[in-house]
């Protein structure tokens, strides 16, 4: 388990996500607020098998944050990748942190 630096925190517009390539994995990183809270889950939408989750809208339900897939709007929980519509389609989540203004992902 190593931490890989991905980008500067400021590279993410607050309220949106970006996609990072870490090893072979496409990882969607979200920054829901203007602070340094970040989340990382797999970028591949398991329904369409397309690399799009980082481009979804961040939304709040049940007091937690999710991302709605831009394709068919299924929602995935930011903290662990759980799929609200069908948990069998949940995606992986990754440890992520901000260190000296840079985002680091564990893989």
């Amino acid at each position: 388990m190593t931490w890989t630096t991905v980008c500067e925190l400021d590279a993410i517009v607050p309220g949106t996500g970006v996609c990072a390539l870490v090893g072979d994995a496409q990882i969607a990183i979200f920054r829901p607020h203007a602070d340094d809270t970040v989340y990382a889950i797999a970028n591949i939408d398991p329904f369409a098998e397309a690399s799009v989750l980082s481009r979804g809208l961040i939304c709040e339900h049940q007091g937690e944050l999710w991302v709605a897939s831009p394709l068919k709007k299924q929602r995935f929980r930011l903290r662990d990748g759980l799929c609200l519509e069908n948990r069998d389609y949940s995606v992986a989540s990754y440890a992520v942190r901000v260190s000296e203004g840079h985002i680091e992902v564990q893989n």
Partner: peptide, 22 residues
């Protein structure tokens, strides 16, 4: 504008219609 970007569906964020393969 940065304050509007997070509000848009991906179509509007990247100013194109997203297709099934992204």
């Amino acid at each position: 504008k940065p304050e509007h970007t997070p509000l848009q569906d991906t179509n509007d964020v990247f100013l194109g219609n997203m297709q099934k393969d992204g």
